[in-house]
Simulated scan of single mutants.
Amino acid sequence: MIVVSAATGNIGRHLVDLLLAEGAPVRALTRDPERAGLPAAAETVRADLTDPASLETALAGAEALWLNLAAGGSQAALQVVDAAVKAGVRRIVLNSSLSVTDTTADDEGFISRMHASVERAIQASGVEWTFVRGGMYATNALQWAPGIKAESVVRGPFPEAVAAPVHEADLAAVSARALLDRSGALLGTAPYVTGPEAVTVAEQAAAIGRAIGREVRFETITVEAAADAMASDSFPKEVALQLLGYFGASVGTDPQRTDEVQRITGRPARTFEEWAADHADDFR
């Protein structure tokens, strides 16, 4: 049995489908099974990773766990790691972050510190592990959907901020290979997973415009205004400001790109243009 946390998230949905296609038994965790819309072949289980009482049932009989901090944050993830060890889970694949560098710098940033603390707990637990350190998610662009739908506009402080956005389906594909790996080739590794191309924010907006068949323009706003727009109960303004700081620092740089998707899955990483086409309906 493979347990998938955050099973209704952008990566989790793809991962459930991929594992089922490989014939693997899947237990999909969600706070609301009735609204999850997951395949009938998956065992969809109600679980709140911030509630330790729900973990025993969620992890019973599991051999492997895909852990995503989006399902409850780093403190909840640490509880899950402890519960997984007690339940006899033998392998944990963590959806981690490219910001983790295995240096002292990991303790300086909010995002790197959050993921590094869970990585260290997993390493110390004695289970088999793989850390999928994803780069900037292409799905970050979904935050622009209201502005694109209403005004065909994207607002932000750095139109020339550049990254190699990674498609959530590629993160899921790498995670699936790590969960199903019988050779041991991926155990104890932390692949950096990125998209294949350097794309500026303005170029991302233009790609979405092409996908939906109308021009999408970029409007520059202040960092403070952008952070206020990004912040929510689940995404603190502190994190938004840090993320925007990364964006600002990326202007004029050549972002890190790897071939890990190709190496691990056997197929090229999807481009942002492909991502925009896959998500066109989200912006119409």
Rank of each mutant, 00 (worst) to 15 (best):
V166D: 01
A64I: 11
P39S: 04
H14V: 00
L29Q: 05
E260N: 11
Y246S: 09
Q204V: 03
A83E: 03
R31I: 05
I148G: 09
R31H: 10
L179Q: 08
E108A: 12
Q143H: 15
V201C: 03
G12I: 12
A138G: 15
E34D: 15
M136R: 14
D32P: 12
R46H: 13
F272R: 07
E224N: 12
L243C: 09
V118E: 02
W144H: 14
L67H: 09
E224R: 12
R120V: 06
G248P: 15
D278P: 00
L244Q: 13
T194M: 01
V3F: 06
E34T: 04
F110E: 13
G88L: 04
G73Y: 04
S112F: 06
V174Y: 04
G188S: 07
L29F: 08
L171C: 06
D282E: 15
P255V: 00
P191K: 01
M230T: 12
T194F: 00
A226M: 10
F247N: 13
E34P: 00
M114W: 07
V261D: 01
P33N: 06
R284S: 10
R210E: 15
G23A: 05
K149L: 09
Q256M: 11
I148Q: 05
T130C: 15
V81R: 08
A185D: 13
P25F: 08
T220F: 02
D48M: 02
A225M: 13
A70S: 10
V45M: 13
L18D: 06
T222V: 05
S183Y: 05
A211Y: 04
I2F: 10
V201D: 11
A138N: 14
G73K: 03
E273F: 02
L244R: 14
T30M: 11
P165H: 03
I111V: 14
E108W: 07
